Computed example of a mutant assay.
Amino acid sequence: MTSTARVLRGAYLTAGAVSVLAAAAGPRGDRFTRTVKPALMPLLAASALAGRRTGARPGAVTGAVAGVVAGLAGGWVGDVILMGPDGRSADSRTRARNLNRGSAAFAVNQVAYITALWRKGHRPQKGPLALRVPVLASGVLTAATGAPAALPAAVGYGSLLAAASVLAADPTVTGRHADLHGVGLGGNLFVLSDGLILARQAFLTGQKPLVRVLDGIVDGLVMATYVAAQLLLVEGLTRE
Rank of each mutant, 00 (worst) to 15 (best):
R28V: 04
G26K: 07
D91V: 15
G87K: 11
G127C: 05
V108T: 12
R28H: 07
G26T: 09
F106Y: 14
A60W: 08
Q110Y: 01
R97N: 09
A48Q: 04
K120D: 12
L72T: 03
V108A: 14
V133G: 09
G84P: 08
V77G: 04
T94L: 08
V108D: 01
A24I: 07
A25H: 02
L99C: 03
A60L: 15
V36W: 06
V133C: 10
R53A: 15
G139Y: 08
A116W: 06
S89A: 11
A112T: 03
A66K: 04
S92Q: 12
A45C: 06
G55Y: 08
K126I: 14
L129C: 05
A56L: 15
F32D: 02
P85V: 15
P134K: 14
T54S: 12
A50R: 10
G78E: 01
P27E: 12
W76Q: 10
S89Q: 12
A50V: 10
S103Y: 03
D91H: 13
D86L: 15
A112Q: 04
R88G: 14
F106E: 05
A48T: 04
P58F: 02
A23E: 09
Q110I: 00
K120A: 07
Q110H: 06
R53V: 12
W118Q: 05
Q110D: 01
P128S: 05
A112V: 05
G55A: 06
A24W: 08
D79M: 10
L117N: 01
P134R: 12
V68G: 03
G127E: 11
D30P: 00
Q110T: 00
P85L: 10
V68W: 02
G71W: 10
A64M: 11
M41H: 13
A60C: 02
L82R: 03
A66I: 04
I114A: 08
G59T: 11
A107C: 08
L136G: 07
G121W: 13
R123Q: 05
G78F: 01
G55S: 07
L43V: 07
G29R: 05
P128K: 03
G87P: 07
Q110E: 05
A112I: 02
R88S: 12
L141S: 13
L44I: 13
Q125P: 01
R93A: 13
L141C: 09
D79F: 11
R101T: 02
V135C: 00
T33E: 13
G67M: 09
L136I: 13
P134S: 15
A39G: 05
V135R: 00
P85I: 08
A66S: 15
